[in-house]
Computed example of a mutant assay.
Amino acid sequence: MSLRKPAAVLPVAALALAAALSGCAPQGAKSDGAAASGATGATASCAPGALATRTAGKLTVGTDKPAYDPWFSEDKPENGKGFESAVAYAVAGKLGYPQDKVGWVVAPFGKATSPGAKDFDFDINQVSISDERKQAVDFSSGYYTVRQAVIALKGSKAAGARSIADLKGAKLGAQIGTTSLETITGTIKPSTQPAVYDSNDLAKAALKNGQVEALVVDLPTAFYITGAEVPEAQVVGQFASAAQGEQFGLVLDKGSTLTPCVSQAVDALRADGTLAALEKQWLSDAVSAPVLK
């Protein structure tokens, strides 16, 4: 995971909007993105810059606060730096909204993925697409395939783990409502109940203070934490992906008419190489870690 903070992101707004949006679902049809999200009967007009957004002529994007590196930079989602900030503006550009037509709102992780009306058009916050979450919200196509990883203080027993079995006796922690916590309870299955925290900041403090032996986070975050925030910790290893791979998706209100258009935009960014380029720019130094089996 890169600790570098480049001065500029790719010129995503200049990508060809018409080509990206020509395949959006017409009235009465539902795109593959909408079907994958769990949306039922959603229709949409994907006219660039004229979507049925919360505020006419503008696109509102949600994310949590603090907004962590490497996904965002300097806790400022609006600056276009960091992988997810850059992806958000790339999607906005494909939808016909330049950077000055994009606004941001704070959307706590748990609230963004819970049932109920949203105050954003889409949310971007390392939210893994899952069947359970699809019952409450829509998802776009996946924009990033991720693995979970374990970090532990150097010299600790957990730091020497070479397998999942080696972690079963450890006191582990993760943020509430995340795939990281699901990895602990469903994959590691420790003998001690994991510690659950409202934010990664609280989890990191617990690790520093010795309240937990190790944390589970996504791999790019693991490299950032150990490289920049808790240098006394190390990446122990990562977990193998599921058959289809865990993916982060943009979160939309359940049944949103925007879901097909947003999915088409994400698909177009994948097809034209933008997602791969942004991943290389912001996440390329997240080198491989041993796979724990």
Rank of each mutant, 00 (worst) to 15 (best):
K58Y: 09
V61R: 00
V61K: 03
V61M: 01
V61L: 08
G62L: 07
T63Q: 09
D64S: 15
D64Q: 15
K65P: 10
K65F: 11
P66A: 00
P66H: 00
A67K: 10
A67N: 05
A67I: 05
Y68F: 13
Y68S: 12
Y68K: 14
D69Q: 15
D69V: 14
D69E: 15
D69L: 14
P70Y: 02
P70N: 04
P70R: 01
W71A: 09
W71H: 09
F72D: 03
S73Y: 14
S73D: 15
S73H: 15
S73P: 14
E74Y: 11
E74S: 12
E74R: 11
K76A: 10
K76Y: 03
P77L: 04
E78V: 12
E78K: 11
E78Q: 12
N79S: 01
G80E: 09
G80H: 13
K81N: 11
K81S: 14
G82D: 06
G82E: 10
G82T: 10
F83D: 00
E84H: 10
S85K: 09
A86N: 12
A86E: 11
V87K: 08
A88M: 02
A88E: 01
Y89M: 08
Y89S: 05
Y89T: 08
Y89F: 09
A90I: 11
A90T: 12
V91A: 06
A92N: 01
A92T: 04
G93I: 00
G93Y: 01
K94F: 07
K94D: 14
K94T: 12
K94A: 09
L95P: 03
G96I: 09
G96Y: 07
G96E: 04
G96V: 01
G96Q: 05
Y97C: 00
P98C: 01
P98I: 04
P98T: 03
Q99F: 12
D100F: 09
K101N: 07
K101T: 04
K101L: 07
V102F: 00
G103L: 08
W104R: 08
W104Y: 03
V105M: 07
V105C: 02
A107R: 06
P108N: 02
F109S: 10
G110C: 10
G110E: 14
G110F: 08
G110V: 12
A112C: 00
A112L: 00
T113V: 15
T113L: 13
T113G: 10
T113R: 14
P115K: 10
P115D: 02
G116M: 06
G116Y: 05
D119P: 12
F120D: 05
D121M: 05
D121H: 03
D121Y: 01
D121W: 02
D121C: 03
D121N: 05
D123F: 08
D123M: 13
I124Y: 03
I124L: 04
N125W: 04
Q126L: 15
V127R: 06
V127K: 06
V127H: 04
S128E: 13
S128R: 13
